[in-house]
Write a protein that binds this DNA or RNA. Structure first.
Lengths: 354, 354
DNA sequence: CTGTTAGCGCATTCAT
DNA sequence: ATGAATGCGCTAACAG
């Protein structure tokens, strides 16, 4: 059956076997309704008998459609982008598209190179993360006229299509919530802000929200570390060596918050009594930490689906919104409450929602 | 500079611009040493000036090399495979290869379809997870004569190359460890075993290890659930409604173990005093849970690197081991100790960590 | 509804 | 060291 010396089975072979032309086989594959049922049946049988698998390179070369979409993300390691990738891949697969995945480790030059590589590979569209990229990247995208979309950000003033949320507002809301609870010594543990507009925006959002309330955010209260649990721990340790430790801490990710909670247990710092903690992402584990983590829930799955939708619509020349703002939610759970000073002094009753 | 009405820049354009033939440009790209330095410089300049990006489809069609490797994994959601994918992608990128990623949700038919799709896309090699696949998959692989490798498993008796570890032995070691501590009522919370030889093997390994010690594993002590934290919680709840709850529980993944620990806190079950817990994977968070999770550390990163190495070596016709067994470690941390019965009866002094 | 024809862009002979 | 010519496998005009 399987001839070990045979070369690859081609459309030609199928055509010969089914006694028709290659064009007909091609049609049977791509627009079956244009082929007589009888012929189609013969072709299908031949395809099966020969074990024919189309050659995507030839198809892509001829039709200029590779059926591949590329994604360039910072990293898969932090699991932050896993949900995005998962939903993106699924949505694309529904329309017969495959996902070419590359990472750049927060290096804009690598991001540019990887994008160029994706274009070389013939991807029809590109999904990016963030709004700020190397200038060359935008040139490249413009030159190739391939649909692309930035995710994890929403900026209607941008020249580039995006699907995501306003990182400033989201983080600001969390900051205001802590302020409303009565916290005045609020610290921030942020992920790397260099080449990462999402983290930078969140930090900026916090800063401006606190300033609006007349609060300063001293540099001693801002710690920047990669998104690793141990870094959250380390950051908390540093904060608690301060002469005046914070009563609340806003984290740039749930991963960092995880580390904070972990270290609090280690140091005997009681959460939320002594310290309130807020995460960002609402990853799966957030609700299962003890106490359950108060955090900012982001639409990771939706971003993946909508990014895929956007690219697919563009590819099919259907209208598509260039700017999609998705909802973010402050999810109040067990790691936040009014600061000890307040409750002790009984200055004010502060309701804690569920 | 960028002509908006221009079609894609091709090799032809570069050749014209650099005043040479397309063959020479092609050589300058693929075997620069064969081209005179002077001409090469001219070509490089032209490439830059025109913003030329090679057409991968044409290149792949002509040379039969797509520079793409495919991976078919169960899912990205559980983050279990994130480290594998991350290291795989990085290693491939080092050699100029891109990664086409697809998922199959533990559905063998989908796995077959996805693999076929990858072949259509022209991947040069394929990385799979597990040793048991649909029969059609192996036929397909054989027919296309593309290098492929199973990961997460080690089975030298298999007909298929693999890079991984012996799931039976790894899980058996954990079971023996619990038995050695004195546990006799040991429960298992396993991930889905259907179409998942890794989980099935781990369960089998546990069962036989216990049988060797004269211990039975009743069905009431085995709970099978997808790898979600909440499922770990639910499973523990069920186990503790048993007339005789276990004194130790072996989990098929750290994620399930996470849920167990979480629920223990909820129910006031003291770990490890009342219950010992062992995970599987040693994910990042394992050491940061409180108590720190005793677990089986698997070589996720190495598997990715070695899988890439294997495929790359095969593609370059270099010798490569078809069977690679990587080390697994039982990492004893804070969630395991002898059962309460033993310590209560004062048979033995048991230290309680932290 | 089907066949004929002509390339898509590139890498690779074979010459020179 | 370089150029001319060929075809990888397929789809899309165009006829019929």
């Amino acid at each position: 059956m399987t001839d070990p010396a045979s070369r690859r089975v081609t459309l030609r072979d199928v055509a010969d076997h089914a006694n028709c032309s290659t064009a007909t086989v091609s049609r049977a594959l791509n627009s079956p309704e244009q082929v007589a049922v009888e012929v189609r049946a013969r072709i299908d049988a031949s395809i099966k008998a020969l074990g024919y698998v189309p050659n995507g390179a030839a198809r892509a070369l001829r039709s200029q459609r590779s059926q591949i979409v590329g994604a360039v993300i910072p990293t898969i390691k932090y699991s932050i982008y896993a949900r995005l990738i998962e939903s993106l891949e699924r949505r694309l697969a529904m329309d017969g598209y495959s996902l070419l995945l590359t990472t750049h480790d927060y290096d804009p030059v690598k991001e540019l190179e990887q994008t160029q590589l994706l274009l070389t590979r013939g991807v029809e569209g590109i999904v990016l993360v963030g709004d700020s990229h190397d200038g060359g990247l935008h040139q490249l995208l413009a030159k190739h006229r391939r649909p692309y979309v930035n995710t994890y950000v929403f900026n209607p003033a941008s020249k580039h299509p995006c699907i995501g949320f306003d990182n400033r507002l989201a983080a600001a809301r969390a900051a205001r919530y802590l302020h409303d609870l009565g916290h005045r010594r609020i610290a921030v543990i942020t992920g790397p802000t260099k080449n990462n507009d999402r983290q930078a925006d969140r930090l900026a959002g916090i800063r401006s929200a606190l300033e609006e309330r007349g609060l300063d955010l001293p540099s001693s209260m801002v710690i920047e570390r990669p998104h690793l649990i141990e870094n959250g721990r380390e950051a908390l340790e540093i904060l608690f060596q301060l002469p005046e430790p914070p009563t609340a801490v806003l984290c740039g990710s749930d991963v960092l918050a995880f580390g904070v909670l972990s270290e609090c247990q280690e140091l005997g710092v009681s959460v939320p009594n002594q310290l309130s903690v807020v995460g960002f992402d609402d990853q799966d584990f957030a609700k299962h930490l003890r106490p359950a983590l108060t955090t900012v829930g982001i639409p990771a799955v939706e971003m993946g689906i909508e990014a895929a939708n956007y690219i697919l619509r563009k590819l099919n020349r259907q209208p598509a919104n260039n700017f999609t703002n998705l909802d973010v939610q402050l999810i109040v759970r067990g790691t936040t409450m009014p600061p000890a000073a307040l409750s002790t002094q009984g200055k004010r009753a502060v309701p804690v929602s569920a």
